[in-house]
Amino acid sequence: MIVKHLAEIVGTKDDIDTPTWSSRRFLLKQDQMGFSLHDTIIKEGTETYIWYKNHLEAVYCIEGEGEIEVVGGETYAIRPGMMYALSGHEKHFLRAKSQMRMVCVFNPPLTGREVHDEEGVYPLDAE
C-alpha cells in the first residue's frame, strides 16, 4: 500500500515548479500503478501550450476557473467539479483566470522529471 500526504511532497524533488504551473507528483512510474497521479496548480493569469503526444491525461478541477482551448476546435470553461480527458492527444492551450487546482492522471505514468518541451510535449520516458 502507498500512503502519502501533500505536505510530504511540497518542496521535494516531486514538487516541480514552472512559470505557469506547479505539479506535486503523488504516484509515478516507479510506484508501478500503471498511471501517475498529480496535484497541480495552474498559476493565475497564465497560458500554457500543451500537446501530450506520448500520454493520455484526465484532469479534474477542484479549485479556480479558466479554460481549455483545443487547437482548431472548441474552447471549454473550466470550473470546480469539471473533468476533461485528452483522449486523442489534443494540442491545446490551458488558461487560468484564477489560480486553478487540478487532479491529473497520466497514462503511461510519468517518471517525475517531466516538463513541457518547445512543442508542449512530455518525453515518453524522462528518466
Rank of each mutant, 00 (worst) to 15 (best):
V59H: 04
I78V: 14
Y76L: 03
M83E: 11
Y84W: 13
K53F: 02
Y52F: 15
L86H: 09
V71I: 12
E44C: 04
I62W: 09
T12A: 01
E47V: 10
V115D: 05
E127I: 04
W51A: 13
G34K: 01
V3R: 08
N107F: 10
Y122D: 10
D125C: 13
A58S: 11
K43T: 09
D31L: 02
P109W: 07
K13C: 00
K13A: 06
K29A: 00
E67F: 02
L110W: 12
E90N: 12
H55G: 07
E57D: 02
D14M: 02
P109R: 03
I2N: 12
F26C: 00
A7S: 12
E63V: 11
V121R: 06
R95S: 07
F93Q: 13
A58T: 13
L110F: 06
V3K: 04
M100G: 09
H92R: 14
Q30E: 11
M33W: 05
W21D: 13
L124R: 14
A85D: 04
Q30P: 01
M83Q: 12
D117S: 03
V70F: 01
E57M: 10
K29E: 08
Q32P: 03
H89A: 15
V70K: 07
A85C: 09
S98A: 03
A7I: 04
D17W: 01
A96E: 13
A126T: 05
H5I: 03
K91N: 04
R25D: 07
E119K: 06
L6V: 08
I50T: 10
M100I: 15
E114H: 12
E74M: 12
G112R: 00
E90P: 06
I78H: 08
L37T: 06
T18V: 00
R95A: 05
R113M: 09
I9A: 01
G81T: 11
G120K: 07
A85L: 01
A96T: 15
T46C: 08
G45I: 09
A7F: 02
D17L: 03
E47D: 02
G34M: 12
G120A: 08
T46F: 14
T75A: 07
E114L: 09
Y84C: 04
E44D: 08
G66L: 07
I2S: 11
K97Q: 15
S98E: 15
G81A: 13
H5E: 13
Y49K: 10
E57C: 12
K53G: 05
R79F: 11
E69M: 11
L56P: 01
M33N: 08
I78E: 08
V59G: 11
I9F: 01
F35R: 02
G34H: 00
V103D: 09
D17G: 03
G73C: 05
E44N: 13
K97D: 15
T18G: 01
W21K: 01
T48F: 06
K13Q: 08
L94M: 15
